[in-house]
């Protein structure tokens, strides 16, 4: 049991009458990077908040680092790091002061917080900003500071709620590097994200959530292979041809139609070019199957706000 850092059984969260997390169960192993994916309002952030003790659980069981999340919340908070969605930096202070003050909340003496803080700023490559006011930082730098802050108490586990949302691609790449660096050090991590590519690359395992439930869970590669296959053949069609084409591909291939576009799933034992013969169009694309295909398949493709 020692190598399980988080375990939920029938975990539920209700706000009033509204159930946002509906009886999910999962285990997260030590050193693992675990991803929670899902559309907006799927229940990812609520799940995270229950795990890092920002909101009480409404039902089920939740253990973090072997401790009961309800009764041992402050014990847990000593041993975890949190990077919330909105950074939550203290705008009254400079970058380094933020780390010192946050360290003091963790009972760290100022000198310890300062030396650890400088080291973390270097690790997150924002050490040249240590005397800057938080307000002057870019979005990416703020996020990196928030991650450094989450590490100040040398946590055994790190929670990151949408660590790359709202950042430009360069800043996102930097954060990915930082997270990979942390993973290499053996840090157990839980993160939520909208970015499939990010989840595919960083997460050892992930769960796709919607309406407060897990739709599927596993290694990203396995999920892609099991739900989609190795490749996807895409082509567009006219509304009137949809039924005809469906009938034609149904026998040989799994598929989904997103608006007026067919997506055929090519399994391990199939070949993409076999599909080409079936389809009377020159405008088709063969590409590798991705986590995005899995996501669209299991979570559906309606627009969410």
């Amino acid at each position: 049991m020692l190598d399980i850092v988080a375990e939920a059984r029938g975990l539920t969260k209700k706000y009033g009458e509204k159930t946002v997390v509906n009886g999910i169960s999962f285990q997260i192993k030590k050193g693992e990077c675990y991803g929670l994916l899902g559309p907006n309002g799927a229940g990812k952030t609520s799940t995270m908040k229950m795990m890092y003790g920002a909101t009480p659980i409404s039902g089920g069981e939740l253990h973090i680092l072997g401790l009961d999340a309800t009764s041992k919340s402050s014990e847990i908070k000593k041993r975890i790091g949190v990077v919330p969605q909105d950074d939550g930096l203290d705008t009254d202070f400079t970058v380094l002061e933020n780390l010192i003050i946050y360290g003091s909340y963790h009972n760290l003496p100022s000198e310890v917080a300062q030396s650890r803080g400088r080291e973390l700023l270097r690790f997150m490559s924002i050490d040249e900003k240590s005397q800057a006011s938080v307000d002057t930082l870019s979005g990416g730098m703020k996020r990196r500071l928030a991650i450094a802050r989450g590490m100040i108490n040398q946590p055994e586990m790190l929670f990151l709620d949408e660590p790359t949302t709202g950042l430009d691609p360069q800043a996102r790449l930097l954060i990915w590097d930082n997270l990979r660096g942390l993973k290499k050090q053996g840090m157990s991590m839980v993160l939520t994200t909208h970015y499939m590519e990010e989840a595919y690359q960083i997460c050892d395992r992930l769960a796709i959530m919607d309406h407060g439930k897990f739709l599927c869970e596993g290694r990203p590669k396995d999920l892609v292979r099991d739900h989609i296959g190795k490749e996807v053949v895409e082509f567009s069609c006219e509304e009137k041809d949809k039924k005809y084409l469906s009938d034609k591909v149904r026998e040989k291939f799994d598929y989904q139609v997103i608006r007026n576009r067919f997506h055929l799933f090519i399994k391990e034992n199939q070949e993409g070019k076999d599909a080409m013969g079936l389809i009377p169009t020159d405008y088709l694309t063969i590409r590798k199957a991705t986590l995005e295909d899995v996501f669209l398949k299991v979570a559906g493709h309606d627009l969410r706000d």
């Binding site: 890092y52 402050s74 014990e75 908070k77 939550g88 203290d90 009254d92 946050y102």
Partner: peptide
Amino acid sequence: VQKTYETIMMTPIS
């Protein structure tokens, strides 16, 4: 506005 309390709540302080 600054959500300072929410940040402090992420630490062992009640």
